[in-house]
């Protein structure tokens, strides 16, 4: 690990000032950053420790019925907050399906949003990677890429975003509150992560010095509490990144889907909101045929970036499964194996 200056500012303003210099980066719990630093992928010259910043570790119920989650709230605390799990069950399930209990105890909400790809070529210092080294090329493109992106990728980068948490969040229109040199601003979470295009190295919409201070869920996000699921296919039962995942949230009234939210994980460089599928579902009766149509719509623009055509088929099936399970109703308690297909019934 390269040596670095360590600073622990007392206020958000000081933090922004400290982090506005080239080479500086924020340190929250460090569960991803330290991993990247140990791997030589990230070599910051200054760490700005934000873990003690006051006021960022609260979950606040807003007057308008929304929820504001401080950036320093720990993943485990959020998932185990009884109100939160009741109102936003798919998010809680996604949180608990990610990483391990130890990592969830440490990882923060803000840090999780900034989690970087697990693409092996990104991690492998000997490989060409446009994210690490703009213009270097992408060794994943003709490499071992069975788990890479099928949506929104470019010749410059076919990496996927690894987060589980972000998948239901984009589905539920989460908003990110950012403090920066220019003051406070907001961004839909969907706009935080960028698709690679010509500039894969620009992973998010944040500018130097920008600090995520909170995540906000709008009032409507609660409306889906009765019909929400997060389903994640993995290569082992737990403690593994998603091959493909889906968050489905439905508002069902009078036997009709009034409103649907659908997002996919593991398919693109960002958590993927499937608006086309949502349109298919809106107003329809909740049945298998419409789920399949929605699944086709969700993956309509998908194309393999390598040896991964199966992910397009798998993603469609997981969409159908997530919708089926969501329609069947949110379970009373988060299942023993959160996100696992084996926690629920099979068959669509």
């Amino acid at each position: 690990m390269m040596n670095f200056d360590y600073v622990r500012p007392a206020s958000v303003a000081d933090a922004i000032a400290e982090a506005s210099e080239k080479g500086a980066t924020y340190l929250a719990s460090g569960t991803n950053l330290l991993d990247l630093m140990k791997g030589g992928v990230s070599r910051p010259s200054r760490l700005v420790d934000v873990t003690r910043l006051p006021g960022l570790d609260r979950i606040e119920h807003l007057a308008d019925g929304g929820l504001r989650i401080g950036a320093l709230v720990r993943n485990a605390d959020l998932a185990h907050d009884a109100d939160f799990a009741r109102n936003y069950p798919a998010i809680a399930e996604a949180l608990l399906s990610g990483a391990s209990a130890q990592l969830r105890n440490a990882a923060t909400v803000g840090g999780n949003l900034m989690q970087r790809t697990r693409c092996a070529y990104f991690y492998d210092a000997g490989s060409a990677c446009n994210r690490r080294w703009p213009g270097a090329g992408c060794d994943a493109l003709k490499g071992e890429n069975r788990l890479h992106a099928v949506l929104g990728w470019s010749e410059g980068c076919i990496a996927t975003h690894p987060s589980d948490f972000c998948v239901p969040l984009v589905g539920l229109d989460a908003v990110v509150e950012i403090e920066g040199k220019g003051g406070r601003r907001e961004l839909p979470l969907e706009a935080l992560h960028r698709l690679p295009g010509e500039t894969p190295e620009r992973e998010t919409a944040l500018e130097r010095g920008d600090l995520i201070v909170a995540l906000r869920l709008p009032t409507e996000a609660k409306n889906f509490a009765g019909h929400s699921r997060y389903i994640k296919v993995r290569e082992r039962t737990s403690y593994a990144f998603a091959v493909v995942s889906a968050a489905a949230a439905l508002r069902i009234e009078d036997g009709k889907i009034r409103e649907a939210r659908l997002a996919l994980g593991g398919v693109a460089a960002k958590p993927w909101r499937a608006r086309g599928a949502e349109q298919v579902l809106a107003g329809a009766a909740p049945d298998a045929a419409v789920y399949r149509e929605a699944a086709r719509a969700a993956l309509a623009d998908a194309k393999p970036s390598g040896d991964n055509a199966f992910k397009i088929e798998l993603a469609q099936r997981i969409v159908v499964r997530a919708l089926t399970l969501a329609a069947a109703g949110t379970p009373d308690r988060i299942p023993a194996l959160p996100g696992s297909p084996f926690s629920s019934v099979a068959g669509a």
């Binding site: 360590y6 460090g30 991993d35 140990k38 990483a99 209990a101």
Partner: peptide, 26 residues
Amino acid sequence: DRGQCGACTILVDGRRINSCLALAVS
């Protein structure tokens, strides 16, 4: 040493975490 095995688990302020991914100074 990368948060992938759990052998370094300790309790910090009562919570189990991976001590390999925690800076002492922080």
